[in-house]
Design a protein around this nucleic acid. Structure first.
Length: 549
RNA sequence: GUACCCGUAGCUCAGCUGGAUAGAGCGUCGGCUUGCGGAGCCGAAGGUCGUAGGUUCGAAUCCUAUCGGGUACACCA
Protein backbone atom coordinates (compact mmCIF):
# COMPACT_ATOMS: atom_id res chain seq x y z
CA UNK A 1 0.00 0.00 0.00
CA UNK A 2 2.80 2.33 0.94
CA UNK A 3 4.61 1.50 -2.29
CA UNK A 4 1.56 2.30 -4.32
CA UNK A 5 1.03 5.73 -2.77
CA UNK A 6 4.67 6.50 -3.26
CA UNK A 7 4.49 5.54 -6.90
CA UNK A 8 1.48 7.79 -7.44
CA UNK A 9 3.07 10.62 -5.55
CA UNK A 10 6.19 10.35 -7.65
CA UNK A 11 4.21 10.25 -10.87
CA UNK A 12 2.24 13.37 -9.93
CA UNK A 13 5.39 15.21 -8.98
CA UNK A 14 7.06 14.17 -12.17
CA UNK A 15 4.23 15.06 -14.51
CA UNK A 16 2.73 18.12 -12.89
CA UNK A 17 5.28 19.20 -10.32
CA UNK A 18 2.68 19.13 -7.55
CA UNK A 19 2.94 17.50 -4.13
CA UNK A 20 -0.03 15.37 -3.13
CA UNK A 21 -0.83 12.77 -0.50
CA UNK A 22 -2.82 10.36 -2.61
CA UNK A 23 -5.72 8.65 -0.89
CA UNK A 24 -6.09 5.01 -1.78
CA UNK A 25 -9.41 3.32 -1.40
CA UNK A 26 -10.51 -0.24 -1.76
CA UNK A 27 -13.04 -0.22 -4.58
CA UNK A 28 -15.39 -2.95 -5.70
CA UNK A 29 -13.45 -5.97 -6.78
CA UNK A 30 -14.61 -5.50 -10.36
CA UNK A 31 -12.70 -2.20 -10.49
CA UNK A 32 -9.41 -3.37 -9.13
CA UNK A 33 -7.49 -3.66 -5.89
CA UNK A 34 -6.96 -0.01 -5.17
CA UNK A 35 -8.42 3.15 -6.55
CA UNK A 36 -7.42 6.76 -6.27
CA UNK A 37 -9.17 9.98 -7.12
CA UNK A 38 -6.06 12.20 -7.31
CA UNK A 39 -6.84 13.06 -10.89
CA UNK A 40 -10.22 14.45 -9.86
CA UNK A 41 -8.61 16.49 -7.15
CA UNK A 42 -5.91 17.77 -9.45
CA UNK A 43 -8.32 18.66 -12.22
CA UNK A 44 -9.35 21.95 -10.70
CA UNK A 45 -5.91 22.94 -9.57
CA UNK A 46 -4.42 22.28 -12.99
CA UNK A 47 -7.50 23.37 -14.86
CA UNK A 48 -7.46 20.27 -17.00
CA UNK A 49 -9.82 17.49 -17.85
CA UNK A 50 -9.65 14.92 -15.03
CA UNK A 51 -9.78 11.98 -17.39
CA UNK A 52 -6.81 13.28 -19.30
CA UNK A 53 -4.84 13.72 -16.10
CA UNK A 54 -5.87 10.29 -14.97
CA UNK A 55 -4.75 8.75 -18.23
CA UNK A 56 -1.38 10.46 -18.08
CA UNK A 57 -0.91 9.28 -14.52
CA UNK A 58 -2.09 5.78 -15.26
CA UNK A 59 0.52 5.50 -17.99
CA UNK A 60 3.19 6.95 -15.80
CA UNK A 61 2.75 5.05 -12.54
CA UNK A 62 5.50 2.55 -12.19
CA UNK A 63 5.80 -0.20 -9.66
CA UNK A 64 6.55 -3.86 -9.94
CA UNK A 65 3.67 -4.49 -7.55
CA UNK A 66 1.18 -3.19 -10.09
CA UNK A 67 -0.10 -5.43 -12.82
CA UNK A 68 -2.13 -2.80 -14.61
CA UNK A 69 -3.81 0.55 -14.23
CA UNK A 70 -7.04 1.75 -15.75
CA UNK A 71 -8.93 4.98 -15.95
CA UNK A 72 -12.61 4.76 -15.20
CA UNK A 73 -15.69 6.87 -14.56
CA UNK A 74 -15.09 10.58 -14.18
CA UNK A 75 -11.37 10.07 -13.65
CA UNK A 76 -10.61 7.35 -11.17
CA UNK A 77 -7.44 5.42 -11.54
CA UNK A 78 -8.02 1.79 -10.77
CA UNK A 79 -5.00 -0.19 -9.84
CA UNK A 80 -4.71 -3.90 -10.22
CA UNK A 81 -1.96 -5.51 -8.21
CA UNK A 82 0.19 -8.35 -9.36
CA UNK A 83 -0.70 -11.79 -8.09
CA UNK A 84 2.72 -12.15 -6.61
CA UNK A 85 2.35 -9.00 -4.59
CA UNK A 86 -1.07 -10.10 -3.34
CA UNK A 87 0.30 -13.45 -2.28
CA UNK A 88 3.16 -11.80 -0.49
CA UNK A 89 0.78 -9.48 1.36
CA UNK A 90 -1.42 -12.36 2.42
CA UNK A 91 1.35 -14.67 3.51
CA UNK A 92 3.60 -12.20 5.20
CA UNK A 93 1.41 -9.72 6.98
CA UNK A 94 3.21 -6.86 8.55
CA UNK A 95 1.43 -4.22 10.52
CA UNK A 96 3.32 -0.98 10.23
CA UNK A 97 4.09 0.19 13.73
CA UNK A 98 2.93 3.81 13.74
CA UNK A 99 2.70 3.78 17.53
CA UNK A 100 6.00 2.08 18.06
CA UNK A 101 7.39 2.61 21.57
CA UNK A 102 4.65 5.03 22.48
CA UNK A 103 3.31 4.59 25.97
CA UNK A 104 -0.45 4.97 26.06
CA UNK A 105 -2.70 4.94 29.10
CA UNK A 106 -6.17 3.61 28.57
CA UNK A 107 -8.71 3.97 31.32
CA UNK A 108 -11.94 2.05 30.96
CA UNK A 109 -14.51 -0.03 32.77
CA UNK A 110 -14.53 1.90 36.00
CA UNK A 111 -17.34 0.17 37.84
CA UNK A 112 -18.00 1.77 41.18
CA UNK A 113 -17.78 -0.25 44.35
CA UNK A 114 -20.95 -0.33 46.46
CA UNK A 115 -23.01 -0.27 43.29
CA UNK A 116 -23.94 -2.99 40.89
CA UNK A 117 -21.77 -3.33 37.81
CA UNK A 118 -24.12 -2.78 34.91
CA UNK A 119 -24.05 -3.50 31.22
CA UNK A 120 -22.64 -0.07 30.45
CA UNK A 121 -19.54 -0.95 32.44
CA UNK A 122 -19.37 -4.22 30.59
CA UNK A 123 -19.54 -2.40 27.29
CA UNK A 124 -16.90 0.13 28.28
CA UNK A 125 -14.65 -2.65 29.54
CA UNK A 126 -14.85 -4.74 26.41
CA UNK A 127 -14.40 -1.76 24.12
CA UNK A 128 -11.53 -0.36 26.16
CA UNK A 129 -9.73 -3.65 26.18
CA UNK A 130 -10.11 -4.03 22.42
CA UNK A 131 -8.82 -0.52 21.77
CA UNK A 132 -5.87 -1.25 24.03
CA UNK A 133 -5.09 -4.38 22.06
CA UNK A 134 -5.31 -2.44 18.83
CA UNK A 135 -2.77 0.05 20.12
CA UNK A 136 -0.52 -2.83 21.07
CA UNK A 137 -0.86 -4.37 17.64
CA UNK A 138 0.35 -1.04 16.27
CA UNK A 139 3.40 -1.07 18.45
CA UNK A 140 2.32 0.87 21.53
CA UNK A 141 3.06 0.06 25.14
CA UNK A 142 -0.39 0.14 26.66
CA UNK A 143 -1.21 0.54 30.34
CA UNK A 144 -4.75 -0.51 31.02
CA UNK A 145 -5.99 1.26 34.11
CA UNK A 146 -9.26 1.61 35.91
CA UNK A 147 -10.50 4.17 38.36
CA UNK A 148 -13.02 3.48 41.03
CA UNK A 149 -15.08 5.60 43.33
CA UNK A 150 -14.43 4.25 46.77
CA UNK A 151 -15.38 7.54 48.41
CA UNK A 152 -18.22 9.87 47.71
CA UNK A 153 -21.89 10.26 48.24
CA UNK A 154 -22.78 6.89 46.72
CA UNK A 155 -20.74 5.22 49.44
CA UNK A 156 -22.62 7.11 52.11
CA UNK A 157 -25.88 6.06 50.52
CA UNK A 158 -24.80 2.44 50.63
CA UNK A 159 -23.72 2.71 54.26
CA UNK A 160 -27.01 4.30 55.16
CA UNK A 161 -28.87 1.45 53.46
CA UNK A 162 -26.86 -1.13 55.35
CA UNK A 163 -27.51 0.73 58.56
CA UNK A 164 -31.24 0.66 57.96
CA UNK A 165 -31.44 -3.03 57.17
CA UNK A 166 -28.65 -4.65 59.15
CA UNK A 167 -27.12 -2.06 61.42
CA UNK A 168 -23.43 -1.53 61.70
CA UNK A 169 -22.54 -3.88 64.51
CA UNK A 170 -20.49 -7.05 64.20
CA UNK A 171 -23.58 -9.12 63.51
CA UNK A 172 -24.16 -6.93 60.49
CA UNK A 173 -20.63 -7.52 59.35
CA UNK A 174 -21.20 -11.25 59.51
CA UNK A 175 -24.45 -11.04 57.56
CA UNK A 176 -22.97 -8.84 54.94
CA UNK A 177 -20.12 -11.25 54.43
CA UNK A 178 -22.53 -14.09 53.68
CA UNK A 179 -24.47 -12.07 51.21
CA UNK A 180 -24.32 -13.14 47.61
CA UNK A 181 -22.06 -10.72 45.83
CA UNK A 182 -24.75 -9.52 43.51
CA UNK A 183 -26.67 -8.20 46.49
CA UNK A 184 -24.31 -5.31 47.13
CA UNK A 185 -26.19 -2.82 45.01
CA UNK A 186 -29.38 -3.33 46.96
CA UNK A 187 -28.26 -1.18 49.90
CA UNK A 188 -27.11 1.55 47.60
CA UNK A 189 -30.52 1.77 46.00
CA UNK A 190 -32.12 2.00 49.43
CA UNK A 191 -29.92 4.97 50.27
CA UNK A 192 -30.27 6.57 46.85
CA UNK A 193 -34.04 6.42 47.06
CA UNK A 194 -34.13 7.81 50.59
CA UNK A 195 -31.75 10.61 49.64
CA UNK A 196 -34.21 11.84 47.06
CA UNK A 197 -37.41 11.35 49.01
CA UNK A 198 -36.60 11.88 52.65
CA UNK A 199 -34.94 15.03 53.92
CA UNK A 200 -34.09 13.45 57.23
CA UNK A 201 -32.32 10.60 55.52
CA UNK A 202 -30.58 13.08 53.26
CA UNK A 203 -29.11 14.85 56.26
CA UNK A 204 -28.00 11.55 57.77
CA UNK A 205 -26.36 10.49 54.53
CA UNK A 206 -24.55 13.78 54.24
CA UNK A 207 -23.18 13.26 57.74
CA UNK A 208 -22.07 9.75 56.85
CA UNK A 209 -20.38 11.15 53.77
CA UNK A 210 -18.11 13.41 55.82
CA UNK A 211 -17.28 10.48 58.06
CA UNK A 212 -16.25 8.38 55.10
CA UNK A 213 -13.71 11.02 54.18
CA UNK A 214 -12.55 11.67 57.74
CA UNK A 215 -12.45 7.99 58.76
CA UNK A 216 -13.37 9.02 62.31
CA UNK A 217 -15.83 6.22 63.04
CA UNK A 218 -14.09 2.85 63.46
CA UNK A 219 -17.25 0.75 63.18
CA UNK A 220 -18.28 2.56 60.04
CA UNK A 221 -14.81 2.00 58.65
CA UNK A 222 -15.16 -1.71 59.28
CA UNK A 223 -18.40 -1.97 57.34
CA UNK A 224 -16.97 0.27 54.67
CA UNK A 225 -13.85 -1.83 54.17
CA UNK A 226 -15.90 -4.98 53.96
CA UNK A 227 -18.25 -3.55 51.37
CA UNK A 228 -15.33 -2.32 49.34
CA UNK A 229 -13.68 -5.70 49.39
CA UNK A 230 -16.86 -7.56 48.46
CA UNK A 231 -17.33 -5.21 45.52
CA UNK A 232 -13.81 -5.54 44.26
CA UNK A 233 -13.89 -9.32 44.54
CA UNK A 234 -17.00 -9.37 42.44
CA UNK A 235 -15.51 -7.06 39.81
CA UNK A 236 -12.39 -9.16 39.70
CA UNK A 237 -14.45 -12.24 38.93
CA UNK A 238 -16.05 -10.50 36.00
CA UNK A 239 -12.80 -9.09 34.66
CA UNK A 240 -11.20 -12.51 34.95
CA UNK A 241 -14.08 -13.98 33.02
CA UNK A 242 -13.68 -11.37 30.29
CA UNK A 243 -9.93 -11.88 30.23
CA UNK A 244 -9.18 -8.28 31.09
CA UNK A 245 -6.10 -7.56 33.16
CA UNK A 246 -5.54 -4.10 34.49
CA UNK A 247 -2.07 -2.80 35.01
CA UNK A 248 -3.16 -0.48 37.73
CA UNK A 249 -6.20 0.36 39.77
CA UNK A 250 -6.74 3.91 40.92
CA UNK A 251 -9.10 4.81 43.71
CA UNK A 252 -10.85 8.07 44.33
CA UNK A 253 -9.61 8.01 47.89
CA UNK A 254 -6.12 8.39 46.38
CA UNK A 255 -6.96 11.22 44.04
CA UNK A 256 -8.80 13.35 46.59
CA UNK A 257 -5.81 14.95 48.19
CA UNK A 258 -3.89 15.81 45.06
CA UNK A 259 -7.07 17.05 43.43
CA UNK A 260 -7.85 19.34 46.34
CA UNK A 261 -4.30 20.61 46.29
CA UNK A 262 -4.61 21.60 42.63
CA UNK A 263 -7.92 23.28 43.18
CA UNK A 264 -6.65 25.16 46.21
CA UNK A 265 -3.51 26.31 44.43
CA UNK A 266 -5.52 27.58 41.51
CA UNK A 267 -8.47 29.11 43.29
CA UNK A 268 -8.65 32.73 42.31
CA UNK A 269 -6.93 31.97 39.03
CA UNK A 270 -8.67 29.02 37.46
CA UNK A 271 -11.39 28.42 40.01
CA UNK A 272 -13.62 30.88 41.81
CA UNK A 273 -15.71 30.96 44.96
CA UNK A 274 -19.44 31.03 44.53
CA UNK A 275 -22.13 30.49 47.12
CA UNK A 276 -19.66 28.83 49.45
CA UNK A 277 -18.46 26.37 46.83
CA UNK A 278 -15.42 26.39 44.61
CA UNK A 279 -16.39 26.32 40.98
CA UNK A 280 -14.96 26.41 37.49
CA UNK A 281 -16.81 28.81 35.26
CA UNK A 282 -17.04 26.84 32.06
CA UNK A 283 -18.99 29.61 30.35
CA UNK A 284 -15.78 31.49 29.72
CA UNK A 285 -14.81 28.75 27.26
CA UNK A 286 -18.30 28.05 25.96
CA UNK A 287 -19.07 25.29 28.43
CA UNK A 288 -21.00 25.21 31.69
CA UNK A 289 -20.10 25.80 35.31
CA UNK A 290 -19.26 22.89 37.54
CA UNK A 291 -18.65 22.62 41.26
CA UNK A 292 -15.25 21.29 42.26
CA UNK A 293 -15.49 21.66 46.03
CA UNK A 294 -18.86 21.72 47.74
CA UNK A 295 -19.89 24.34 50.25
CA UNK A 296 -19.32 21.66 52.89
CA UNK A 297 -15.72 21.54 51.80
CA UNK A 298 -15.95 18.13 50.17
CA UNK A 299 -14.39 17.41 46.79
CA UNK A 300 -16.63 16.40 43.92
CA UNK A 301 -15.94 13.95 41.12
CA UNK A 302 -14.44 16.87 39.19
CA UNK A 303 -11.72 17.49 41.72
CA UNK A 304 -10.96 13.83 42.11
CA UNK A 305 -10.70 13.38 38.37
CA UNK A 306 -8.39 16.34 38.17
CA UNK A 307 -6.27 14.68 40.83
CA UNK A 308 -6.36 11.45 38.87
CA UNK A 309 -4.89 13.01 35.76
CA UNK A 310 -1.98 14.25 37.82
CA UNK A 311 -1.67 10.92 39.59
CA UNK A 312 -1.44 9.13 36.26
CA UNK A 313 1.04 11.70 35.06
CA UNK A 314 3.26 11.03 38.06
CA UNK A 315 3.11 7.28 37.53
CA UNK A 316 3.58 7.45 33.77
CA UNK A 317 5.38 10.70 33.02
CA UNK A 318 6.42 9.52 29.57
CA UNK A 319 2.99 8.54 28.35
CA UNK A 320 2.34 10.02 24.94
CA UNK A 321 -1.39 9.81 25.27
CA UNK A 322 -3.96 9.17 27.93
CA UNK A 323 -7.36 7.95 26.87
CA UNK A 324 -10.42 7.78 29.08
CA UNK A 325 -13.35 5.75 27.85
CA UNK A 326 -16.83 6.30 29.27
CA UNK A 327 -20.42 6.53 28.16
CA UNK A 328 -21.26 9.69 26.26
CA UNK A 329 -23.41 11.04 29.08
CA UNK A 330 -20.12 12.22 30.53
CA UNK A 331 -18.92 14.00 27.42
CA UNK A 332 -19.85 17.49 28.55
CA UNK A 333 -18.51 16.86 32.00
CA UNK A 334 -15.15 15.84 30.60
CA UNK A 335 -14.94 18.92 28.44
CA UNK A 336 -15.27 21.09 31.52
CA UNK A 337 -12.82 19.03 33.55
CA UNK A 338 -10.28 19.07 30.73
CA UNK A 339 -10.80 22.79 30.17
CA UNK A 340 -9.96 23.40 33.81
CA UNK A 341 -6.97 21.08 33.51
CA UNK A 342 -5.67 22.85 30.45
CA UNK A 343 -5.51 26.08 32.44
CA UNK A 344 -3.44 24.31 35.06
CA UNK A 345 -1.34 21.96 32.97
CA UNK A 346 -1.88 22.43 29.26
CA UNK A 347 0.49 19.74 27.99
CA UNK A 348 -1.21 17.17 30.18
CA UNK A 349 -4.67 18.24 29.06
CA UNK A 350 -3.56 18.12 25.45
CA UNK A 351 -2.53 14.52 25.60
CA UNK A 352 -5.64 13.46 27.49
CA UNK A 353 -8.59 12.38 25.38
CA UNK A 354 -12.05 11.46 26.43
CA UNK A 355 -13.57 8.83 24.18
CA UNK A 356 -17.31 8.38 24.49
CA UNK A 357 -19.38 5.38 23.59
CA UNK A 358 -23.15 5.35 23.28
CA UNK A 359 -25.77 3.83 25.48
CA UNK A 360 -26.22 0.14 25.39
CA UNK A 361 -29.65 -1.36 25.65
CA UNK A 362 -31.12 -4.77 25.10
CA UNK A 363 -33.86 -5.39 22.62
CA UNK A 364 -35.20 -8.76 23.72
CA UNK A 365 -38.48 -7.66 25.16
CA UNK A 366 -39.29 -10.42 27.57
CA UNK A 367 -36.12 -10.84 29.51
CA UNK A 368 -36.63 -12.53 32.79
CA UNK A 369 -35.77 -10.13 35.50
CA UNK A 370 -36.59 -11.86 38.72
CA UNK A 371 -33.95 -9.78 40.41
CA UNK A 372 -35.39 -6.66 38.82
CA UNK A 373 -31.88 -6.02 37.65
CA UNK A 374 -32.15 -6.42 33.91
CA UNK A 375 -29.20 -4.19 33.25
CA UNK A 376 -26.81 -5.80 35.70
CA UNK A 377 -23.62 -7.12 34.16
CA UNK A 378 -23.90 -10.51 35.82
CA UNK A 379 -27.49 -10.82 34.80
CA UNK A 380 -26.65 -10.18 31.17
CA UNK A 381 -23.84 -12.71 31.22
CA UNK A 382 -26.24 -15.28 32.62
CA UNK A 383 -28.92 -14.48 30.08
CA UNK A 384 -26.52 -14.90 27.22
CA UNK A 385 -25.14 -18.10 28.64
CA UNK A 386 -28.64 -19.52 28.94
CA UNK A 387 -29.42 -18.48 25.41
CA UNK A 388 -26.41 -20.41 24.15
CA UNK A 389 -27.52 -23.50 26.05
CA UNK A 390 -30.98 -23.18 24.55
CA UNK A 391 -29.93 -22.61 20.97
CA UNK A 392 -27.25 -25.22 21.06
CA UNK A 393 -27.91 -27.80 23.76
CA UNK A 394 -25.01 -30.05 22.76
CA UNK A 395 -22.49 -27.34 23.35
CA UNK A 396 -19.58 -28.14 25.55
CA UNK A 397 -20.24 -26.35 28.84
CA UNK A 398 -16.53 -25.61 29.00
CA UNK A 399 -16.57 -23.52 25.88
CA UNK A 400 -17.08 -19.84 26.17
CA UNK A 401 -19.23 -19.21 23.16
CA UNK A 402 -21.42 -16.88 25.16
CA UNK A 403 -18.47 -14.62 25.91
CA UNK A 404 -17.57 -14.50 22.24
CA UNK A 405 -21.18 -13.67 21.48
CA UNK A 406 -21.37 -10.83 23.93
CA UNK A 407 -18.01 -9.29 23.13
CA UNK A 408 -18.59 -9.37 19.42
CA UNK A 409 -22.12 -8.02 19.74
CA UNK A 410 -20.73 -5.03 21.61
CA UNK A 411 -17.71 -4.46 19.43
CA UNK A 412 -19.29 -4.66 16.01
CA UNK A 413 -20.97 -1.30 16.33
CA UNK A 414 -19.26 1.93 15.56
CA UNK A 415 -18.36 3.71 18.77
CA UNK A 416 -20.43 6.74 19.68
CA UNK A 417 -23.98 5.99 18.76
CA UNK A 418 -26.38 4.15 20.98
CA UNK A 419 -26.46 0.44 20.53
CA UNK A 420 -29.23 -2.06 20.83
CA UNK A 421 -28.15 -5.61 21.35
CA UNK A 422 -30.40 -8.51 20.57
CA UNK A 423 -29.32 -11.40 22.74
CA UNK A 424 -30.78 -14.04 20.47
CA UNK A 425 -29.06 -12.58 17.45
CA UNK A 426 -25.72 -12.11 19.18
CA UNK A 427 -25.69 -15.74 20.16
CA UNK A 428 -26.98 -16.95 16.84
CA UNK A 429 -24.49 -18.98 14.92
CA UNK A 430 -25.64 -17.48 11.65
CA UNK A 431 -24.97 -14.01 10.44
CA UNK A 432 -22.57 -11.44 11.72
CA UNK A 433 -21.84 -12.81 15.16
CA UNK A 434 -18.91 -13.91 17.29
CA UNK A 435 -19.94 -17.56 17.27
CA UNK A 436 -20.22 -17.48 13.48
CA UNK A 437 -16.61 -16.37 13.23
CA UNK A 438 -15.50 -18.96 15.74
CA UNK A 439 -17.24 -21.59 13.70
CA UNK A 440 -15.69 -20.27 10.51
CA UNK A 441 -12.30 -20.64 12.12
CA UNK A 442 -13.00 -24.15 13.39
CA UNK A 443 -14.16 -25.16 9.95
CA UNK A 444 -10.96 -23.99 8.31
CA UNK A 445 -8.94 -25.75 10.98
CA UNK A 446 -10.65 -29.01 10.25
CA UNK A 447 -9.52 -28.79 6.64
CA UNK A 448 -5.98 -28.26 7.79
CA UNK A 449 -6.27 -31.10 10.26
CA UNK A 450 -7.23 -33.45 7.47
CA UNK A 451 -4.39 -32.41 5.26
CA UNK A 452 -1.64 -30.51 7.05
CA UNK A 453 0.57 -28.09 5.20
CA UNK A 454 3.84 -29.46 4.08
CA UNK A 455 7.08 -27.77 3.20
CA UNK A 456 7.63 -24.42 1.64
CA UNK A 457 5.29 -22.04 -0.05
CA UNK A 458 3.58 -23.41 -3.12
CA UNK A 459 1.79 -20.19 -3.81
CA UNK A 460 4.59 -17.84 -4.77
CA UNK A 461 4.88 -17.43 -8.47
CA UNK A 462 1.49 -18.92 -9.16
CA UNK A 463 -1.14 -17.24 -11.21
CA UNK A 464 -4.25 -17.02 -9.08
CA UNK A 465 -7.59 -18.20 -10.31
CA UNK A 466 -10.56 -15.93 -9.92
CA UNK A 467 -11.95 -17.31 -6.68
CA UNK A 468 -8.50 -17.64 -5.19
CA UNK A 469 -7.56 -14.12 -6.00
CA UNK A 470 -10.47 -12.62 -4.09
CA UNK A 471 -9.58 -14.57 -1.01
CA UNK A 472 -5.89 -13.82 -1.15
CA UNK A 473 -6.59 -10.15 -1.65
CA UNK A 474 -8.96 -10.03 1.30
CA UNK A 475 -6.50 -11.78 3.60
CA UNK A 476 -3.86 -9.25 2.67
CA UNK A 477 -6.05 -6.34 3.78
CA UNK A 478 -5.71 -7.29 7.43
CA UNK A 479 -2.82 -4.99 8.36
CA UNK A 480 -4.53 -1.95 6.83
CA UNK A 481 -7.64 -2.66 8.84
CA UNK A 482 -5.73 -2.97 12.10
CA UNK A 483 -3.93 0.29 11.45
CA UNK A 484 -7.11 2.10 10.57
CA UNK A 485 -9.01 0.75 13.56
CA UNK A 486 -6.24 1.87 15.92
CA UNK A 487 -5.86 5.28 14.29
CA UNK A 488 -9.58 5.95 14.52
CA UNK A 489 -10.10 4.24 17.88
CA UNK A 490 -12.76 2.16 16.21
CA UNK A 491 -12.61 -1.56 16.92
CA UNK A 492 -15.70 -2.22 14.84
CA UNK A 493 -13.59 -1.99 11.69
CA UNK A 494 -11.96 -5.23 12.77
CA UNK A 495 -15.33 -6.92 13.22
CA UNK A 496 -16.56 -5.77 9.84
CA UNK A 497 -13.40 -6.98 8.19
CA UNK A 498 -13.38 -10.38 9.87
CA UNK A 499 -16.95 -10.97 8.88
CA UNK A 500 -16.25 -10.02 5.27
CA UNK A 501 -13.19 -12.23 5.34
CA UNK A 502 -15.22 -15.19 6.51
CA UNK A 503 -17.82 -14.52 3.85
CA UNK A 504 -15.14 -14.31 1.19
CA UNK A 505 -13.71 -17.59 2.34
CA UNK A 506 -17.06 -19.33 2.43
CA UNK A 507 -17.70 -18.23 -1.13
CA UNK A 508 -14.31 -19.51 -2.19
CA UNK A 509 -14.79 -22.75 -0.35
CA UNK A 510 -18.19 -23.34 -1.86
CA UNK A 511 -16.80 -23.24 -5.37
CA UNK A 512 -13.28 -24.51 -4.99
CA UNK A 513 -12.23 -27.90 -3.86
CA UNK A 514 -9.20 -27.86 -1.62
CA UNK A 515 -8.25 -31.39 -0.67
CA UNK A 516 -7.75 -33.61 -3.67
CA UNK A 517 -7.55 -30.78 -6.16
CA UNK A 518 -4.54 -30.35 -8.39
CA UNK A 519 -4.02 -26.97 -6.75
CA UNK A 520 -4.25 -28.44 -3.26
CA UNK A 521 -0.86 -27.29 -2.00
CA UNK A 522 -1.42 -23.65 -2.78
CA UNK A 523 -5.00 -23.68 -1.63
CA UNK A 524 -4.12 -25.26 1.68
CA UNK A 525 -1.76 -22.40 2.15
CA UNK A 526 -4.58 -19.97 1.56
CA UNK A 527 -6.74 -21.79 4.07
CA UNK A 528 -3.91 -21.58 6.58
CA UNK A 529 -3.38 -17.88 5.97
CA UNK A 530 -7.12 -17.32 6.28
CA UNK A 531 -7.42 -19.26 9.52
CA UNK A 532 -4.41 -17.46 10.98
CA UNK A 533 -5.79 -14.07 10.04
CA UNK A 534 -9.16 -14.86 11.49
CA UNK A 535 -7.53 -16.04 14.67
CA UNK A 536 -5.31 -12.98 14.93
CA UNK A 537 -8.26 -10.69 14.52
CA UNK A 538 -10.40 -12.53 17.02
CA UNK A 539 -7.55 -12.64 19.49
CA UNK A 540 -7.19 -8.90 19.18
CA UNK A 541 -10.81 -8.63 20.21
CA UNK A 542 -10.09 -10.99 23.09
CA UNK A 543 -12.29 -13.63 21.54
CA UNK A 544 -10.85 -17.13 21.49
CA UNK A 545 -10.62 -18.96 18.18
CA UNK A 546 -11.13 -22.63 18.98
CA UNK A 547 -10.01 -25.27 16.48
CA UNK A 548 -13.07 -27.38 17.21
CA UNK A 549 -16.51 -26.50 18.42
C1' G B 1 -33.77 27.28 27.26
C1' U B 2 -28.27 26.09 26.06
C1' A B 3 -24.67 22.41 24.61
C1' C B 4 -23.27 17.55 22.82
C1' C B 5 -24.57 12.78 20.33
C1' C B 6 -27.79 10.42 16.92
C1' G B 7 -31.71 9.95 12.65
C1' U B 8 -29.52 5.10 6.13
C1' A B 9 -34.21 -1.25 3.87
C1' G B 10 -39.72 -4.06 8.28
C1' C B 11 -35.69 -4.77 12.42
C1' U B 12 -30.22 -4.35 13.92
C1' C B 13 -26.29 -1.89 11.72
C1' A B 14 -21.92 -0.62 7.93
C1' G B 15 -20.68 3.27 4.60
C1' C B 16 -19.25 9.85 6.84
C1' U B 17 -10.85 13.04 5.70
C1' G B 18 -17.20 14.38 -0.70
C1' G B 19 -16.57 10.62 -5.85
C1' A B 20 -18.25 5.22 -9.94
C1' U B 21 -25.11 1.27 -9.65
C1' A B 22 -26.02 3.40 -1.18
C1' G B 23 -23.95 -2.22 1.37
C1' A B 24 -24.39 -6.37 5.21
C1' G B 25 -27.01 -9.45 8.76
C1' C B 26 -31.82 -10.83 10.63
C1' G B 27 -36.74 -11.44 8.82
C1' U B 28 -39.75 -12.67 4.02
C1' C B 29 -39.90 -15.47 -0.75
C1' G B 30 -37.28 -18.92 -4.28
C1' G B 31 -33.10 -22.20 -5.42
C1' C B 32 -28.26 -25.45 -4.21
C1' U B 33 -27.54 -33.26 -1.77
C1' U B 34 -22.68 -36.81 -5.50
C1' G B 35 -16.86 -32.20 -2.51
C1' C B 36 -13.15 -31.39 2.40
C1' G B 37 -18.02 -28.98 9.09
C1' G B 38 -25.09 -26.99 4.88
C1' A B 39 -23.59 -23.09 11.61
C1' G B 40 -22.68 -22.65 4.40
C1' C B 41 -23.62 -20.81 -0.78
C1' C B 42 -26.69 -18.50 -4.93
C1' G B 43 -30.94 -15.44 -6.20
C1' A B 44 -35.44 -12.10 -5.43
C1' A B 45 -38.34 -8.44 -3.13
C1' G B 46 -37.33 -4.25 0.11
C1' G B 47 -34.21 2.56 0.58
C1' U B 48 -37.43 10.29 -1.04
C1' C B 49 -29.98 8.11 3.24
C1' G B 50 -35.58 12.57 8.86
C1' U B 51 -37.08 17.26 6.02
C1' A B 52 -35.76 21.89 3.39
C1' G B 53 -32.11 24.93 1.53
C1' G B 54 -26.77 25.88 0.42
C1' U B 55 -21.43 24.84 -1.18
C1' U B 56 -19.47 21.61 -5.33
C1' C B 57 -18.23 19.12 -11.82
C1' G B 58 -20.08 15.63 -7.92
C1' A B 59 -23.29 15.29 -1.17
C1' A B 60 -25.70 9.69 2.87
C1' U B 61 -20.84 12.20 3.70
C1' C B 62 -19.41 19.36 4.35
C1' C B 63 -22.48 24.12 5.91
C1' U B 64 -27.27 26.40 7.59
C1' A B 65 -32.17 25.90 9.18
C1' U B 66 -35.92 22.69 10.80
C1' C B 67 -38.36 18.24 12.82
C1' G B 68 -37.74 13.77 15.77
C1' G B 69 -34.96 10.70 19.58
C1' G B 70 -31.13 10.47 23.45
C1' U B 71 -27.83 12.79 27.05
C1' A B 72 -25.82 16.64 30.01
C1' C B 73 -26.35 21.39 32.18
C1' A B 74 -23.92 24.06 40.58
C1' C B 75 -22.66 21.55 45.26
C1' C B 76 -24.17 13.04 42.81
C1' A B 77 -20.67 9.90 40.11
Amino acid sequence: MQEISEAIKAAVKDLFNVDVEPVLTRPDEQFGDFATNVALQLAKKLNKNPRVIAQQLADKIQSDTIAKTEVAGPGFINICLSDNYLIEQALDQKIAQPLKDQEILVEFGDPNPFKEMHIGHLYSSIVGDAISSLFEANGAEVRRVCYQGDVGLHVAKWLWGVHQELGWDDAAVAKLRDLPHTGIGYYYSLGAKAYEENTEAKTEIDVINTKVYSKEDPQLNKIYELGKRLSFDKFQDIFDLLGIAYKKQYLESQSVEIGLKYVKENTGKVFTHSQGAVIYEGEKVGLHTRVFVTSKGLPTYETKDLGLTELKNTDYPNAARSIIITANEQSEYFKVMLAALSEIDKPLADKTTHLAHGFLSLSSGKMSSRTGDVYGATNLLNLVQNEVKQQYPDTNPENETYLAAIKYAFLKHRLGSDVTVDIKESVSLQGNSGPYLQYAHARACSILAKSPLQGQSKLQGQTLQEGERGLVRKIGEYPEVIEKAAAELMPHHVCMYLYELAQTFNRFYENNKVIGDSRQAGRLQMVKAYADTLKNGLTLLNIPAPEKM
